[in-house]
Nucleic acid binder design. Structure first.
Lengths: 193, 193
DNA sequence: CCTCAGGTAGAATGATTGCTCTACTTGCGT
DNA sequence: ACGCAAGTAGAGCAATCATTCTACCTGAGG
């Protein structure tokens, strides 16, 4: 990952850009070569098949995404959570207006197991870091659910999607606080209120 | 839509099955013909291009999905909401284990505007009917966000994704009740329950 | 009996694709 | 000065795909 030659990094960045801009079915290898600004020969030297190029683009994006979302968050768990949601909005605006690249990749090639594994690792690492930042290890899945919903809603509602996600996050925080106060016995939905 | 000949319906159902099982890039027209159990000629007669076949499959699924999710819901808004979430879980289990077909279609062909419009109409109609069933017209976007997040999480967490969605729905209900009680400002915890 | 609308099977076509290969260039260490 | 590692440009190849076309079948109605 970090032991990438300069040219390899340039290629991976170009691949990510191409796939992010046009999805995973449209760009043929010639287009990928143009995006990587490298000859076909060299492209195939580092990534010997188109599928490898897809994986390279996703690995590259994974790193970029995590640093962008989790670098220098506020110390307060609540503020960190809200800030993550806002950053996802900015990320969508500037880099992923068509939706999550990992889901797109899996959707374009559902039988590709390596891709599905990569998606799973990506989402799980994101969820863990989010739960850690928000100091809500019990609610990892709920937090991930909010962020996934946000990314799906964003193409439809733009900034309103962010507002909804923030709203839900606030509701979750308030709700878990209630649950803690009542010794957790109010765990099941039926018993709440 | 409802003025479809018998054979046209059979074709659309077969197309939906094929795309749901294998995504939108893998099945070639021969495969679609096999799924539709019809000759290539007839297939092209009703849907003169592969893209038309994709649209037909999605229209068909749209109808099937809405009836399956919203038919005969409980009268209580809260129970209706919970039931919708559970039904989405069952739907994923039995019909959409790879995720939302509409998102998959758009992911496979991001430059296809007709597809994007269809996705938008599908999600918006779903959101409206859900908000109406749950009697929460103010929170249409939040409800849609929960359901979208659930559909994304389902392939990763299965039934646990449902639990998380139910948990979030409960939090949202509790939270909006508090907001109403306290005129919009988040009130003291004691007013909940 | 004949017609014909509406079906079937599947070969032909033209374009595109992922990938390989040949031939040429360039920069650097000794 | 020379060799070589590592790049470029782009032609060629086998496979695949969407689409069209030819040829044949079938059953209901007059």
């Amino acid at each position: 990952m970090s032991n990438m030659s300069e040219i390899q990094t340039q290629i991976a960045a170009g691949l990510e850009r191409a796939f992010a801009a046009h999805g995973f079915s449209v760009p043929n290898v010639d287009m990928l070569r143009d995006a990587a600004q490298v000859s076909l020969r060299t492209l195939y030297k580092y990534y010997p098949s188109r599928n490898d190029m897809v994986l390279a683009a996703l690995e590259f994006r994974h790193e970029r995404y995590l640093t962008r979302i989790f670098s220098g968050l506020p110390a307060s768990p609540r503020d960190a959570l809200y800030e993550v949601i806002r950053r996802i909005g900015h990320w969508m605006e500037s880099e992923a207006s068509h939706g999550c690249l990992f889901h797109s990749a899996v959707a374009a090639a559902p039988e590709n197991e390596a891709l599905r594994n990569l998606l799973q690792r990506h989402k799980q690492e994101f969820a863990q870091r989010l739960a850690a930042s928000a100091k809500l290890p019990e609610n990892e899945k709920e937090l991930l659910l909010i962020c996934e919903g946000l990314m799906q809603l964003w193409p439809l509602y733009r900034d309103d999607a962010c507002e909804s996600a923030l709203h839900l996050a606030a509701a979750l925080l308030a709700h878990t606080r209630v649950e803690q106060k009542t010794d957790g016995s109010i765990g099941s939905i039926e018993t709440v209120c």
